[in-house]
Amino acid sequence: MKYTQGKYLILKKSAIARNIYSFEILCPEVADVATAGQFVHIRVEGFTLRRPVSICGIDKNKGTLRIVFEIRGEGTEMLSHLNEGCLIDMLAPLGHGFTLNQDFRKVILIGGGIGTPPMLPIAEFYGSKATVITGFRSADAVILQNDFKSTGAETVLCTDDGSLGIHGFVTQPFEEIINSEKIDAVYACGPMPMLKNISRKAIEKNIYCEISLEERMGCGIGACLVCACRTKKNDEEYFAHVCKEGPVFNAKEVIFNG
């Protein structure tokens, strides 16, 4: 679980949807220890705070990581100006990732929007045992569909406006599957309302469910206690920290607002 800070070479950059970029980064010591669900904390020149970005691919043989991020503000905009051949300053790998189990026979992966990238390493682990349900605002925001297909996983695509795939939210195909098959685990990342719905339905069906949360972050390693999220620990409310105790939590432990 050792993390390091360093400047690493961007081998490949691609624009994969509107305002969404993919970097392949050469960082053997990070790739060597990184696991699905962890994140990297990126320094952006001219900004005080680092930007956390989830890991979308880990290639231990090539010693590379892949990250996919969306321009959300000035920091990620600046990050998107980095090109192939540039160095990227990362503190990584950070956080507590997903629990993967070789014995699981059927799992569901759910990604909402820019919450989709951390699902890819899980799909690579489970292959054809996984069904990946992804949802996006519209066709121009859809990412990673071919990457998921190449893992052997079954894919289900939804868009809010119906411009591609199923017209509607990910919760609808999710419910259909859990009502018709035995599912061993659910993994999800995306907007809070989506995570709340998925968690509630998985818990009702007694399916093991892990969700990856996002929060504005400081140090990224668990020292500053900035990125608090409400959880339950021994039936008592406990402010856990997304950067160290998360970003992945057992859905049963998370307290959702409202």
Binding site: T48, L49, E74, R216, G218, V226, A228, Y238, F239
Partner: peptide
């Protein structure tokens, strides 16, 4: 102490 609700940090 649990501290304040999130978000607890902002770039300036």
């Amino acid at each position: 102490r649990n501290g304040n609700p999130s978000p607890r940090i902002a770039e300036t």
